[in-house]
Every structure is written in structure tokens, then in C-alpha cells.
Design a protein around this nucleic acid. Sequence first.
DNA 1: GAGCACTGC
Length: 741
Amino acid sequence: MVILPILQFEEKILETVEQNSVVVIIGETGSGKSTQLSQILHRKGYTKSGIVAVTQPRRVAAVSVARRVAHELGVRLGEEVGYAIRFEDRTSEKTRIKYLTDGVLLRESLSNPELNQYSVIILDEAHERSLNTDILLGLMKRLVEMRLSNFKVLITSATLDGDKVSRFFSNCPTLTVPGKLFPVEIMYSRERPTSYLESSLKTALDIHIREAKGDVLIFMTGQDDIEKLVSKLEERVKSLEEGSCMDAIILPLHGSLPPEMQASWGFEEQFDEVGLVRTCNIKGNVTYTWLVLGVRVFSPAPANCRRFIVATNIAETSLTVDGVVYVIDSGYVKQRQYNPSTGMYSLDIVQISRVQANQRAGRAGRTCPGKCYRLYPSAVYHEEFADVTVPEIQRSSLAGSVLYLKSLDLSDLDILKFDFLDPPSRESLEDALKQLYLIDAIDENGSITHVGRTMAELPLEPSLSRTLMEANELSCLSQALTIVAMLSAETTLLPGRSKGTEKKRKHASPDFPDGSGWGDHIQLLQVYDHWDQANYDPRWCKDNDLQVRGMMFAKDVRKQLSQIMQKIAKENMVFWKPEPLDVQANQRWKENRRDYKNLRKALCIGFPNQLAERMIHHNGYRTLGYKPQLVQVHPSSVLRTDEDGKLPNYVVYHELVATSRPFMRNVCAVEMSWVMPILKKLEKLNINKLSGASDASDERSKEEDLSDLPKKELDVVRAPDDRDSRIQAARDRFLARKASR
DNA sequence: GAGCACTGC
């Protein structure tokens, strides 16, 4: 049996943890940190005073690692060792070691801010710097100060940023645990290629002709390039002289792939003790096995045959391909970025960081010494690449995170001063505050409102939560739940984006829902309702070119949201559906079915900064919430024009994406009378007041010079609990009805 | 008239 490297450090780790509340562990790949740290602490008795929690950025990782640890300890999964991910809690009263996604831990801390049930919290894979991990890092820093004794935090990170994390935690000790990787020889290009596609192709063929056996993993940026390279590579390999080198199999690997494989290759699914296994037969001669939950892609490696896996960064962390000896690294990755001044997302091809480059190279040394071909010069790696990837917190809209932090009621919390490992820009935080103010989650002084608290309970972006609450008021909650759930699942709904899919679908079934002209949100609602009427039959999805996986996800989300809304309805006394005797409410409920008026209005209230006005002479739009920009309705939209060929005067959009041009994706018609009050509110908005930069800025700066104490008093004085009047009105109505019965 | 890297509550 192979001894994992980390076990040789058991005593050192325990000694350091004993003497310090926070320890950073630099665990290289293959060190066994994810499975062993929790067991080491368990053996020492840390599970007697509480649970040892280990967070993971991904669901599959939480499940598979928990499974492994349960197996190693010889216990049943869900008893002493368990896991918790969204929609699935496999823990019990017996659970002493708990694996969970960082999102779930954040949710837990909402109802139990001190996380008292845990004696140790291990933040695993912190170097990936997910949005949730970054927030947890900030919270842990506060928590170790609050829970001085009997609480330990361990953070696992990468070589390049371990010191930074240590500094963040008052120079806590750092332990390095070596991995089990074989050496990887790094080869650089002399210069940067003009086309990294051609360059990858050439390098791959060179390897195939010259190098010994071993699979080749090629990192590309996206589906398009992957498909191009796969077909070119196939062509070139075929043209090689028969018998001059071994056979080759070329495989694409990217996020939207498995369902496609399922469709064209016929997967068979079965479960074994490790996870979900999918087997497929390619071209009738080679059998591949895809171990989905075990996060591992492997094949029984046919003799005298080399695999080329052309992959996105999914193969960097999420999936492990066994048998890889050669890595070709283009040096680029596709990244989604948010621009807080325009509210626009873009998907850009950017240079990878040194951490990413090392991670990619490491994929070559898992089973034997390997080689990594970097398609860029060594000077680029050393001088141009950043140390670490720009953390997600600096590339995302922060409305949800800011609302979350506000709802924690940390007494001295000024959101602009929250202690982040890498703080987001002031602009980005102000954008979040502005949005929260416009949806009534915070008042004009930046304090969280009653509505805001309720919104924070929902696992949704704040605008969607606000939409649900407004829909509840307007008696169309059930429909809004569907729309919100469908929007959450939207990216996984459509099948692989082979050209013409969209058209084909619309032509194939003329009675496929079209949103009745009102727009995409309504179409999503109608689609789900059709599926509901088909008794959630997977065949219905396939017949209409929708991914079963995506629809099932929407169903799960809808169920979860309904449950939470029902709970809220009870506690806050807002009503769930019209009381039988409430004639007006029932009237509204009926009207809704005709023109979706209330539903569209609820969207308008939920997305006040995502409204747009049509230009007078053409069908372009001007955005209203941010500095005005000219944008177009995305061509895939089902929003309809009137008999003059004009689109609606006002629309609400779910997302602004800059691709070839700025487009609004998921658009819905709204009425001018709903938009006007929102525009007034936008005009009145005072960002300085919202961010607590204060109405009397010079006084404020004096305060800061003195100390932090007076500020707290000031907060108490100037924060009257300005409850949302409509919620109050609903409560009054409810009480009145109750009294009259 | 266009196109989507990867996660997660």
C-alpha cells in the first residue's frame, strides 16, 4: 500500500494546529490533503468537541471525497462521515466529518453565524479563489477572533499564494506538504505563435511521431477551437503512413459535451461503489468509460494507441484524465468578466496565470515523468503572466454577496471596509449597493431592510428574489417561481450549440411555446408548463431539443424555492396565494393568465436597473439603469414586433452581454407607467449616502481620524428601521382579514 | 440575425 505524503507530516501538522488557530497548508497535487487532513484531526480527537468540516468548491468533489473517507474509515456514508450539497444533505446526528460545498457553509452561517457545531473548518482548494471561498476567508478571520478557544481553521492553498494567505491571517504558520507528482519537463516556444491552433496541431503531431507512448492533453479556450483542432488532427493523423506510428484517438472535452455524447454515442449508465459510471462505444471499436462522480476520465488504454484529449480548462481541476504524459498549453483561457460601470458581461480570451500554467503542467506527471509544451516563451511566463488568476470576486456582480454580508448583521460592518483577501473595486461595491437600494433591500442609508432580510434567505441573485416577493404581492408567485427556476437553469437548457439548432427546434414543432409575443421570460414559463403537462416526461424534452438535465435542475430549484417561500410566508405573514374570499386578489390572479401583466410588472420591480427604452426610429434600445448605452435585443429572443415592425417601447432584460455587439439576453416587454416611478428613484439616488461615505463627509473624515468608536454610535442614531411600506401594507391587510373571519 | 470558459446556494 502506498503511504500518502501527508501522513509523514501528521505530527508536525497536529503540533502546529495545536498551537495556532489558523494554519495554511500548501498541499501539492497528490498529497492527499483532501482526504487525510480531516482524518488526522479526527484521530487526534478534534471531532469530540465538534464536527470537522471540509469545504470544496465543487459538488462532485464534496461527494466523491466524502465517499472515499467513509470507505477508508470503514463507516457508512451519511453516518460518521457525510456530505452536504445543494438539494442533498447526507449527514446525520452521528456525523463527525462533514464535506460540504463552500456555498452550503455560507448558507449555514446565515442561520448560525458562529458556526458553533464545528470545531475545525478546513477550506480546501482555497487557491481556486471562488467567490464563496473569498467571502468565507473574510468570515473565518472574524470568527477566529470571536471564538478564541476550541476553534481551528485550516486553509489549503498553492505554492504561489500561500504567503499572501498567511499574511492575511496575521502571519499564521505555513506548512508545505509535498505531492506525489512525477517531474514534468517544461518546454517553451521560442516565440508566441501567430495561431495557437496551428501551433498546437504541429506540436501534437511532433509528439505523436517522436515521443514514446502516453496520452496527450491539449488546453484550448473554447468549443469552437476544440472542434477545429479535433478535425484537423484527425485529418493529419489519417494521412500519416500506415504503420509509421501507433494508432490515435482524438477526443474533445468541454462542459457542454456529455449530453451530446449521450445523444450520439448512446451512454449506458450504471452505479458502482465509487460513483456514476458512463460507458460509451465510439465508432464501434473502442470502449470508453466515463466516471462522472469520481471526477475521472479514463479508458482501458487500448494497446499501441495514443489518445489526444483536446480540452478546455475543465481538465485543469474539474476532471482528471488518466494516462496523460504530455501536455500542450496554449497559455490562454476564456473568462467571463463583469463591468460594474455598464452592468455588462463579456467573455474574453485572456492569458492564464502562473498558478494555472503550473496546474496544467502538473496534469502530465500523474502516472510517470511527463513533458509540458508551453506555446509561449519563458519570458512571457515569468514576466507577463500574473502570479494567480484574478479572483472571481473582482470579476463578478457583487449584489448577492453584499446583501449576504449585510444580512449577517456584523455589528461593525462597513461594507466598503470588509476585510477581503483581495478587495473588489469601490466601483463594483457601489454598483452592488445601488442595485440593492433600487430593489428595496437596503434603505437610503445603506442599512438592510425587512425586504432585504427576506431576500437574503433565498438562494438567488437579489433581483430574482425581489421578483418573487413582488409576484407574491401581485398574486402570481407560482408563475414567477417557474420563471426564476428556469432562468437559473437556462445555460444548461439548450443542447450543444451546433449551428442551426435554434431554427430547427422552432420549425420542428410549430406549437412550441413562443412567449405569446411578450418575450423570453414568458416563453420559459410556457415551456416549463408544457413539460409539467407532459408529466415531466424526459422524452418531451428530447423531442423539443431541451436538455433533460437542465429541466430537471429547474424542477429541483423550483421546489426548493417554493419551500423557502412557504416558510417565509408563514413567518412574515405575506400571503402565499389569494385567500378564497379575497375577490380582488382572485380577479388579479385570473387576469394574469391572459396578459401576464403582473408577472411582467414583478420583473420590472426586481430589475429596476435593467430596463431599456426603444429608440424612436429603429429597434435599438437605450439602457436606463447605467450610463446610457445603445444595445440590441439578442437575435435569439422571441420578443415580437407590432404590425409596424416596432418592438415594445420599454423592456426589462435579464442580462447584458457583449459578444460581437452589446446584446440584451432574455427580454420581456414592460409598460411605461411601471418604468416612470423607477426612473424617479434612480434620479434621487445618492451613492455616497448608500455606501456610508456619509452625508457630511468632512465630519466623517474627522471621525475616522479619531477612532472607530463614535462611528458605531452614529450608525445607531441614523439608522431608523425604515420598513418597506408595501410589506407593511400586506401585513395589515392580512391581519384585517384574519380579524374579520 | 448570433454563438457559450467553469462553478455554486
